[in-house]
Amino acid sequence: MKTEDGVTSPGATLVVTVRDELRRQIQSGVYKAGDRLPSESRLTQDFGVSRTVIREAVAALRADGIVEPKQGAGVFVLAAAETTPQFRDIDTDRVSSIIEILELRTALEGDAAALAAQRRSPAQEEDIIEAFQRLTTLAREDKPTADADFAFHLAIAQAANNPRFSEMLSLIGIAMIPRRMLHRDGDISTPPDYTRVLEQEHGAILSAIQNADPDEARRAMRTHLKNSQTRYREQLRLARGQG
């Protein structure tokens, strides 16, 4: 895929390439504050990618406070003064800071998953499935998964059909995915069994939502995020050379 100036992004994933090109267009004034981005179908045609890729790229821009979807109206560019404030005092050098975010997500997303199991529409269920498949594919190919991971969790929050859940995830922003915080240009190295664990835990959440089982969906989400706390304690210890 090529950007507007005809330069192919070597080695970049499609999501990263689309995300960066849309960000460039916004920063250069192609799309100004208050403008609505082209429709999802138009962007898939313009970039020659699937709608899942477009959704992940837009989700990444949303996490960075650059755009904001409005239900039934589209995705709009935010002015600098209108961008959603990020959480303060997040220090990636402190395990405690990462764990604080994961603890918040455990409380928030457990209920979001339960509501998604009860309230999701067929289209929203399809969005969750597509996000899961994308995340699984990237993990199996040992490619960066941060944006796909965010898109999966955001799709579940949106399927809760309470806009406050997705708004809170956007407020958390890049801190949603600790792997992205540690290395903003890519993921930290993947542990040997991480792909299997990632697929199993996210798959359990998806299955519970598809089975319309709110209690199991809540449990699966909370288990996943509690396990993440344990994993990141170890990964951060190794990444910071404390072992």
Rank of each mutant, 00 (worst) to 15 (best):
residue 20 D to F: 02
residue 41 S to D: 09
residue 204 A to Y: 02
residue 14 L to V: 00
residue 172 I to L: 14
residue 223 T to I: 08
residue 219 R to G: 00
residue 67 V to F: 06
residue 42 R to Y: 08
residue 106 T to W: 04
residue 114 A to I: 00
residue 191 P to V: 02
residue 172 I to F: 09
residue 36 R to I: 03
residue 158 Q to N: 11
residue 116 A to P: 09
residue 230 T to F: 14
residue 159 A to S: 15
residue 215 D to Y: 06
residue 196 R to T: 14
residue 48 G to H: 10
residue 96 S to G: 10
residue 129 I to C: 09
residue 182 L to Y: 12
residue 200 Q to K: 12
residue 26 I to H: 06
residue 141 E to S: 13
residue 67 V to K: 00
residue 180 R to K: 12
residue 88 R to W: 05
residue 26 I to Y: 09
residue 102 L to H: 04
residue 29 G to F: 07
residue 167 E to M: 08
residue 15 V to Q: 04
residue 105 R to M: 13
residue 149 D to M: 06
residue 27 Q to A: 13
residue 104 L to T: 14
residue 82 E to N: 12
residue 229 Q to T: 04
residue 202 H to A: 02
residue 114 A to M: 07
residue 82 E to Y: 08
residue 200 Q to M: 11
residue 84 T to S: 11
residue 129 I to H: 08
residue 193 D to C: 04
residue 131 A to G: 08
residue 61 L to S: 00
residue 135 L to P: 09
residue 159 A to F: 04
residue 174 I to Q: 13
residue 142 D to Y: 10
residue 114 A to L: 05
residue 49 V to P: 11
residue 100 E to P: 00
residue 67 V to M: 07
residue 137 T to Q: 15
residue 53 V to I: 15
residue 237 R to Y: 08
residue 21 E to T: 09
residue 236 L to V: 05
residue 118 Q to F: 01
residue 102 L to N: 06
residue 102 L to E: 06
residue 65 G to I: 00
residue 5 D to K: 10
residue 104 L to P: 03
residue 210 Q to H: 02
residue 228 S to N: 15
residue 238 L to K: 15
residue 154 L to C: 05
residue 31 Y to F: 15
residue 219 R to I: 01
residue 130 E to R: 14
